[in-house]
Design a protein around this nucleic acid. Structure first.
Length: 237
DNA sequence: GCGACAG
DNA sequence: ATCTTGTCGC
């Protein structure tokens, strides 16, 4: 056999999965992305997030009103995840869960916010863009960490905004959303599809109550997914 | 060749 | 993301 096992950086992927094909698919879908406002007086927003445990994904979609934040609908599902996490290919791990939930909503959300990037992506097709194109809905990407790009500007105070630039392109904004003074890291916002970076920031800004770094609907989805997972922890034994 | 690397 | 006790703070 071989010598000491080296830590595996590249997770094992199913035999039928071809990483080059997935990247090619992203390049193709990226051509369909439209970074321009195509929302008419948006009234409702959907926040999406997934929690993981082994081969299963616990997803939640929370639909809320944009004006006062009232939650209109919370949908949950448990699904087998087909892919390990690979930087740049998050959508192939996350979107199967969203595909289960999206058809179930009765609110027909005007905009979708995904816990993942939009333009901030090596091929300019983060999971938010991928979802937006596939579901044909205005979509915004929000993350707690940066996949790529540089923050241009200061984020000294809460409310501060700085541009995210990569390869000379402005891909989105870093926004210090949390009102807690010890909130060190900002939230990274980038347009996914059928929306601009400015409008994305404006919408996210209006959804940040200040108690959480993430916009409320996404945070609510995060909590719902976590609860669902805990529930399965107890029952599945 | 060596690191970095959304969730 | 997840593995994990206590702990600081509103």
């Amino acid at each position: 056999m071989s010598g000491p096992e080296l830590a595996r950086r590249v997770p094992t992927v199913p035999d039928h999965v071809d990483l080059d094909e997935l990247e090619a698919e992203q390049r193709e879908l990226a051509r369909k992305v439209r970074i321009e406002d195509d929302l008419d007086d948006p009234e409702t927003v959907a926040g999406f997030d997934v929690g993981y445990q082994g081969p299963r994904g616990f997803g939640a979609l929370v639909v809320a009103r944009l004006d006062d934040g009232t939650i209109l609908e919370t949908l949950e599902t448990v699904t087998e995840v087909p892919m390990p996490y690979i930087p740049g290919l998050l959508a192939f791990r996350e979107l199967p869960v969203l595909r289960e939930l999206w058809p179930e909503t009765t609110e027909d959300p005007d905009v979708l916010i995904v816990d993942g990037g939009g333009l901030i992506h090596p091929r300019r097709l983060g999971s938010a863009s991928h979802a937006g194109v596939e579901l044909d809905v205005p979509a915004i990407g929000v993350t707690k960490n940066l996949l790529l790009g540089e923050v241009h500007g200061s984020l000294a105070d809460q409310g501060d905004v700085a541009e995210i630039v990569d390869d000379g392109e402005r891909l989105g904004y870093a926004y210090r959303s949390c009102t807690r003074p010890n909130a060190k890291h900002p939230v990274y916002v980038s347009p996914g599809h059928r929306i601009t970076a400015e409008t994305s920031l404006e919408i996210v800004r209006g959804l940040c109550s200040g108690r959480s770094k993430l916009p409320d609907p996404v945070q609510a989805a995060h909590r719902a997914a976590a609860r669902l997972k805990r529930y399965h922890d107890q029952v599945d034994r």
